[in-house]
Write a protein that binds this DNA or RNA. Structure first.
Lengths: 332, 332
DNA sequence: ATAGTAAATGATTGCGCAATCATTTTGCAA
DNA sequence: TTGCAAAATGATTGCGCAATCATTTACTAT
């Protein structure tokens, strides 16, 4: 038995194929009675729409394009999980593009993903090329930028302020009594740069910013890199007594390196991570971290892009963050 | 300027549209001269095939369907990374289905993904329903089962023996001098069950298997769960002096719990993890783990499914594993 | 040279759906 | 009731490609 088509459903329901199409795609435009008849026929025949035909005829796909820098970064797997949750059960599916932190690559991939026109686009960060912004603005589809926050989104945006989060976290280290605070960062993308900026701002507000208090790399973030960067930091800034890390895996690596060297955390050295990726609450001592709403960003972005959010809600959503204070910054 | 179609390319190259189609899809069936003409025209016009039209006309898509139990598990993100690598630059794209460790759900999703027929299927594990095996066997597309190994695959298989890996790891603990070895496992899917079976086999080969030496749960694996299960294990099996963990995050959690309790690793307690997820080499002490070829499984499965592997190679590929001995099992 | 065959290329058609425009039915005011 | 607008439904067409079958060209053996 071949798969039923709209024509089959129409025959079963006693109406024309195009009417069935309409009943399914814009139920509000047809009569109540028709809707019921069609629904019954669809169920009886087990009709499933052919997406290729639909896409070909309308030049519009049911995909939500999601552009993220990397798959291996836990930050994005959390966000993707949120999107996946929100899309589950809807007629939309997710098409993922990995830009590898390269906005030209991003533009290239996006161009290829924009044909046929997807139903929506979710894209990480604010650093699209001007071309990309143009393309997206003119594509005629909902676009949600995620992760960061800005008063001037392409269309909609959901994220939080990385500067503020880092500033608050740094202030927390100051308040905890640390006096020579360093910054450790890997994968220094623009959001990481903002975290660094927030760090600098908080340090300056409390005294003097030292050049040598910063150790960063563009290589990927990992526990191993945390250890490497701590070594770099302590050699250039020996009096350092606390660090703010760019990401939790760095923080974990820093803790391990401290253990290796016999440096007592938090008494001699304070550690604060970022993103609260799950392990930081388990280490001994547990690590203070900036809890960020990763999954919720994904969930909400997906809801916004498929138009499931309240009409009234703003196109700019700042989900904020939270400092989860743990043992690694609590001198007794 | 509308997107160029096969007709446009044909006009440019001075041949018919269908000939262009053939030149692109089966270049070996056309003359050298034609191939060059068509390539030139394609480049000049910037022709990009319309996948929807292709799929609709042939009822066959360019997708490789990938069925995995979960996205949040690092094990599968590694495998997916390998698949993604191997597919990069090819004409195939990846369509991911999450089964949530449920073979009925798997069957349901697979049915929906099998229309239109994909170019290939990569599916985790051996525990498909009989229905699923039938559907896949009859789909007329390459199917690669991954993760596990079996003499009787649906079509092809690439993985390693979980029983043997666990057996070897357990024997390592025995050889390291531990005498009361326990097993900690979360997310007890069939591969985890096999690891447990391998553990039991090795224990029996060296003495007596004690019921209380096993602490498992069906909940997801995490560092926190490692701590919870260690508590359970030590309360039911106080003389326990080493554990084999199902997965590295459990092992990490076990180490932290030992640190909290002041249990010395490896002197008083040995720990061996599984999958070598990157963090185990960084902890203090570093954790011995079973290094498994996750990324390579993905890479190879993708190559096999798109027919890029040597014709000569076997449809059954056992990639084996390796015990990475670290501090957590080295009593001095 | 010529038949016979294989290789190369072409013409037609339909995949299943939605855009567009056309037609019918319904509701309702006067 | 009639007329008319609005709502509901229908007919036709083409999206871009590949399957199928048809035709032309090139090549080989004798």
């Amino acid at each position: 038995m071949p798969k039923p088509t709209l024509v089959d459903v129409g025959r079963e329901a006693g109406v024309s194929a195009i009417t069935v199409s309409r009943a399914l795609r814009s139920p509000e435009k047809v009569s109540e009675a028709l809707r019921r008849k069609v629904d019954r026929a669809v169920k009886k025949l087990g009709y499933v729409p052919n997406q290729s035909a639909s896409t070909l005829a309308s030049n519009k796909s049911n995909s939500i394009v999601v552009m993220v820098p990397s798959i291996s970064n836990n930050v994005f797997t959390d966000v993707l999980g949120g999107i996946s949750d929100a899309l589950h059960g809807s007629r939309f599916n997710m098409q993922i593009g990995y830009t590898n932190y390269d906005s030209l690559e991003e533009e290239r991939i996006l161009r290829s993903f924009l044909n046929p026109t997807p139903s929506g686009v979710i894209i990480s960060g604010l650093e699209q090329t001007e071309e990309t912004r143009q393309i997206l603005a003119n594509a005629g589809v909902p676009v949600v930028q995620i992760m960061d926050i800005s008063p001037d989104p392409i269309d909609m945006i959901v994220g939080f302020s990385h500067d503020q989060a880092a500033e608050t976290a740094t202030q927390h280290l100051v308040d905890a009594g640390y006096r020579n605070i360093g910054f450790i960062g890997a994968q220094m993308d623009p959001r990481s740069q903002k975290r660094l900026a927030g760090f600098k701002k908080a340090i300056k507000a409390n005294g003097t910013l030292l050049e040598q208090s910063i150790a960063v790399t563009n290589k990927p973030s990992s526990a191993h890199m945390g250890a490497v960067l701590l070594s770099k930091l302590t050699s250039q800034f020996p009096e350092c007594d606390a660090v703010l890390c760019n990401n939790d895996d760095l923080a974990v690596g820093v803790l391990f390196e401290c253990q290796r060297r016999g440096i007592k955390v938090p008494e001699e050295f304070g550690i604060c991570g970022f993103n609260d990726l799950g392990i930081s609450s388990e280490t001994v001592p547990s690590i203070t971290s900036v809890t960020t709403p990763l999954r919720e960003i994904g969930r909400l972005a997906a809801a916004m892009v498929i138009g499931e959010e309240e009409e009234s809600s703003s196109p700019i959503v700042d989900l904020s963050y939270n400092i989860s204070v743990r043992e690694s910054t609590q001198r007794v």
